[in-house]
Simulated assay, not measured.
Amino acid sequence: MISNSMMSFLQLVLAELKAIVADKAIAVTLFGGVLFYSVLYPLPYLHQVPTEQQLVVVDLDHSSLSRRLIRHADASAKISVIGQVTSISQAQKWIESGRAHGLLVIPQGFRRDLLLGKGVTLSYGGDASYFLIYSAVAEGLVTAGMDAGKHVQLLGMLAKGQAPKQANLSLNSVKINSVPAFNPSLGYTSYVVPGLFLLILHQTLLIGTGILGAGQWRRKGYWRDVSPLQLVCGRISAFMLIYLFFSSFYVGFCFYWYQVSVQASLSLVALWMLPFLLSTSAAGIALSCLFVRRDLPTQVLLLVSMPIMFVSGFVWPLALIPEPLIWLSQVIPAVPAIMGMLELNQMGASWSSVMPKWLQLWALFALFFMLAWYGVTRRLKSAVDETS
């Protein structure tokens, strides 16, 4: 009896795998989508570090020192000075139109005040819609401003009769050695790709399970010859076999190929991915019970892809998202999975610190498994009633 039961379950899993591969829409979404997105999404970020950001200057001093500051800024690898305007309002219009990404305002009396030893305030800003672009503008201008300040200090030391060599040593007595902790390249790829790949796995898995279920409820097939519990377990098992390969491809090969920082061991990553894939599979089956048209799961899930990405917290600060949305998003498996994976795999967090999110994923699996079981039971029962 046990042997027959096991064999029937294995046959069910094989039938599910055949149905997935034979369905062109599902095959293209799963196999084509995962491979295509592994190249498409990281492509815009391959240059890694933003350089030569366009800067507009408002020079109200028109002195030799202000011109020197502008030359230093233009010489920076981060900045390219594309023009000068006469007012801040004009500079803001350049930024709003996309013509420039940042501005520098040199106040009137800049050279005079520095030579007199007075404090001088340089004003600079940038397009904060893209934090790495803003960071590049700010870093380049801070470096240029420090160079200008050192030049004035050197002139003062030489005027007081200090030897040039000793003056240079005094100016460079303290050196900053900046070592990035979680993003060694300071680039887009290491910042965006890890979370984005998990979101791709989440969305394609939901779409695949959604299309498969929605297209079966009104038709006859092997899914009517098994119990709802067997169907849910068999479907989860079939998709898990496929997505274990996809996950290994993303977290293994793609992370290596795109030089993404990896801090966690393979065993911990596998342990983390298990409840994520299980909960997402169960959620997809439960979602499929809401539809009887094959096109609807794809349309709905594509619409919610962007909101899920923002509430996940890796591309947009959670502090800027309404609190109710953050609480509601906790029932989406991708949200705790992405943040926990970033902490564990990219930041080197201990397992105990991500344990609450890991337990949350198991709780979501239990919740969606029960919903899937209930939904499949209702669908199969209604299908039997319609045919009888």
Rank of each mutant, 00 (worst) to 15 (best):
G252D: 03
I211K: 01
G156W: 09
F239R: 08
I242P: 02
L205F: 10
N172L: 14
W257E: 00
L229R: 14
L154I: 02
G213E: 03
A138G: 07
S382A: 15
G213A: 08
L328Q: 01
D147K: 15
R293A: 10
C254G: 00
S248H: 13
A238W: 03
I285P: 02
F182A: 10
S265A: 10
L206A: 06
R378N: 03
L287K: 04
D147S: 14
G375P: 02
K78C: 00
L271Y: 11
S87A: 12
K18Q: 11
M6R: 13
H72C: 04
S64E: 05
L186A: 06
F182N: 11
N345W: 06
R378D: 01
M341I: 00
L171H: 12
M1Q: 08
S64M: 10
A319I: 09
R235C: 01
H101K: 15
D385P: 00
A136M: 04
P194K: 09
L17R: 03
V13C: 01
S190E: 14
R378Y: 07
S248F: 15
I106N: 02
P184S: 05
L30A: 01
R235Q: 05
W351G: 12
A264H: 05
I20T: 08
G210K: 07
L55H: 02
I133Q: 04
R293N: 09
V142M: 12
I20W: 09
Q153R: 15
Q203L: 15
P317C: 08
S227N: 05
I200Q: 06
G213Q: 06
T143A: 15
P184K: 06
A138N: 11
K381R: 13
D385E: 13
L158C: 05
R112L: 13
L141T: 03
T387M: 14
L199C: 08
T189E: 01
Q53H: 07
E139C: 02
P194E: 06
N183L: 09
L171I: 11
R71F: 06
M273A: 10
A337I: 09
L364A: 06
V292H: 12
S66H: 07
A270H: 05
V21W: 13
A366I: 13
A136P: 02
K18G: 00
D59R: 10
I338E: 00
Y124G: 02
L65M: 08
L367K: 11
L287Q: 01
A366S: 14
D59W: 10
N168Q: 14
L30T: 08
V311P: 07
I200R: 04
S97W: 04
M341Y: 15
I242G: 04
Q92E: 13
V376S: 01
N345S: 09
A144C: 09
Y41G: 01
D127G: 04
L201Q: 07
S190F: 01
F36Q: 04
L141W: 05
S173R: 15
V49R: 09
D113T: 10
C254T: 08
